[in-house]
Design a protein around this nucleic acid. Structure first.
Lengths: 189, 189
DNA sequence: GAATATACGGGACGGTCATCCCGTTTGAAT
DNA sequence: ATTCAAACGGGATGACCGTCCCGTATATTC
């Protein structure tokens, strides 16, 4: 009920929070979602208690890591929708998501459905990446640039395949090859 | 050093081994690799000790489950290679793998790289499904039926996307749609 | 510089699970 | 029928991990 005057957070708290967030971003990106929280704390140079005080659960930490990334992506989607034709907008955004996910194992796992529910976290934060992709898919279909029978779930599944491949550091061209395959396959025949 | 005369296994042992194998096949198929061994034992109507005596680790159990499936698939591959043109053989076998994996969560997870290393188990058993697919891919590329720049790893990644989608029980057509997308995308342009 | 709320570290706790062990049971051979 | 190795069941063990707790340290305020 009260407003919340709430004195400002202490300087060390702000510093630690940022350190945890940075360490978590890096660690989730390289190790995936199954990395122990303990390891993130270690990399941030704090205790595990500090991590869970700032982010009550591992999932909350992951959601926090993703928020700014996601916000960037939704803005990208809106810009594409405004300036490109529906087909180009959809395919460009699709590729952007692959590139994004390929550098973030945690994001890829989450998009692929293997880890936390990324959607709910994102929607809560008002950065609905999946929603944008869905909208862009429908627009592209109406414009005749994508097969009409394809569903959004189909696209997400195909995306997860590309994500897995795009993360291979030994083959830099792989990402573009699989994107091209899916793009060509999705085009209306 | 000795040969191994080894008296024949007891009747109940053979029976239980078969029961465990059957329960494991069914359980891995529906629940995926993360199902507790305890649950498999429960379904087989035996104790957990019985499971681990017959199959020393969970991975060994999974490998055993896969063996006959895999053998069937390699025979299928050989038959296709003998009777179809390279392009058709490859695409048909690719689709067959999706259909197979879609009904077996554990197999799909393994193919997707999320669980145990299916390849080593299969190669050891002389049923090298991946090897056949690889060979068929190369043949199809030589015949001009598949883009030449695509690698086997690319195909596996795209396959994992199809597998994830094909397992959706709520949308029976999804499997064929994503297969069609990948097939069309893979064709030489 | 003293007082106090805030935050810290890292160990404790509880839950899950694969694997191992051992007292008991049972199939098979005599 | 008797014997005994083979096999059984399921609890014990140990590893891992997320979360919570609390005694200690410190930033901030007065």
């Amino acid at each position: 009920m009260t407003g919340r005057p709430q004195r400002a957070p202490r300087a060390d708290a702000r510093r630690n929070r940022a350190a945890v967030l940075r360490a978590a971003a890096e660690t989730f990106a390289t190790e995936g979602l199954s990395v122990p929280v303990h390891e993130i704390a270690r990399r941030a140079g704090v205790g595990t208690g500090t991590v869970s005080r700032h982010f009550p659960t591992k999932e909350a930490l992951f959601a926090a890591v993703l928020l700014d990334r996601m916000a960037l992506l939704t803005r990208r989607a809106d810009a594409l929708s405004a300036t490109e034709d529906p087909g180009a907008a959809f395919f460009t955004f699709f590729a952007a998501l692959i590139h994004e996910g390929a550098d973030h194992r945690g994001l890829a796992e989450s998009l692929a459905g293997g880890g936390f529910d990324i959607e709910s976290a994102a929607v809560e934060a008002g950065s609905d990446v999946s929603g944008r992709l869905h909208t862009m898919l429908k627009a592209a279909q109406r414009a005749g640039a994508v097969r009409g029978d394809i569903t959004f779930a189909d696209v997400k599944a195909l995306m997860s395949g590309c994500l897995a491949r795009g993360a291979d550091p030994a083959d830099a061209g792989a990402r573009d090859r699989v994107i091209a395959v899916v793009r060509d396959g999705l085009r209306a025949s």
